[in-house]
Every structure is written in structure tokens, then in C-alpha cells.
Amino acid sequence: MILEHVVLPVIPGREAEFEEAFAEARPIIERMPGFQRLSLSRGVESPASYLLLVHWDSVEAHEVGFRGSAGYRRWAELLHPFYDPFPVVEHFAEVHRA
């Protein structure tokens, strides 16, 4: 299992609009092969900052499968206009769990 970690810097004042767009975009990613689950959290100290955690079967499921899909193009149309600057995506493999 791979964990995708992304801090999403949403343009201040557009948080509610972003959350609505994310609700529309979420089913797109949920249908992707290799998708396991996700969580989206909003910053307490920085309310225009969101943390997206997505569990995938593999990096390829995300980087090749999802990003190469028509669904990703729609995902990008819905969500990318909200980011400034554009977020950095990183993948993590679990080492320990409690």
C-alpha cells in the first residue's frame, strides 16, 4: 500500500467553493483501479490549507492509472483552479503502525 500526501493551498476566500468542487470530484477518484480510500482535512491554524491523504495499491495506480485517465482530466478541471501555488505530491510506504 502507498500513501499519497498532498497539502492543498487553496486560494483564501474560496474554501467553501473548493469543498463543493471536491465533493463533486471525489467519486471520480473513488472509481479508479487501485484506489483504496482517502481523507481530506482542513487546517485549523491555516483554514485555506487542506491535507489530502489517498491510499493506493501502488504508485503506478496513482501516477499512471489515475493521472493517465479521462477522469483525471475532469478532476483537474474541477480542482486545480483553486490552488496557489500548485501543490507538491509525495508518496510514502508505511514503516510502522500503532
Score class of each variant (00 low, 15 high):
M1T: 07
I2T: 09
L3I: 06
E4Q: 13
V6T: 12
V6R: 00
V6P: 00
V7N: 10
V7H: 13
V7F: 14
L8M: 14
L8D: 06
P9T: 15
V10E: 03
V10M: 04
I11M: 13
I11K: 13
P12C: 04
P12N: 09
P12R: 06
G13P: 08
G13Q: 07
G13V: 08
G13I: 09
R14P: 05
E15R: 08
A16V: 11
F18M: 04
F18K: 04
A21K: 04
F22N: 02
F22G: 00
A23M: 07
E24I: 05
E24N: 05
R26W: 07
R26P: 02
R26A: 15
R26C: 10
P27S: 05
P27W: 00
P27I: 00
I28M: 09
I28L: 14
I29L: 09
P33W: 03
F35C: 05
F35T: 03
F35A: 09
Q36R: 11
R37D: 07
L38V: 10
L38C: 07
S39W: 09
S41Y: 04
G43C: 06
V44Q: 10
V44H: 07
E45D: 13
E45L: 12
S46E: 15
P47A: 03
A48M: 01
Y50H: 07
L52E: 02
L52N: 04
H55F: 11
H55L: 14
W56P: 02
W56K: 02
W56Q: 01
S58D: 08
S58Q: 10
V59T: 06
E60T: 05
A61M: 09
A61S: 15
H62K: 00
H62D: 05
E63T: 10
V64H: 14
F66M: 13
R67L: 11
G68E: 14
S69V: 11
A70F: 11
A70W: 11
A70H: 12
G71M: 08
Y72L: 07
R74W: 03
R74I: 11
R74M: 02
R74K: 12
W75K: 03
A76V: 11
L79T: 05
L79V: 08
L79R: 02
L79Y: 05
P81A: 09
P81E: 06
F82W: 06
Y83A: 02
Y83E: 01
D84Y: 15
P87A: 12
P87M: 12
V88T: 13
E90H: 08
H91E: 07
F92W: 04
F92R: 03
E94M: 15
V95G: 08
H96M: 15
H96F: 15
H96V: 15
A98H: 12
A98L: 13
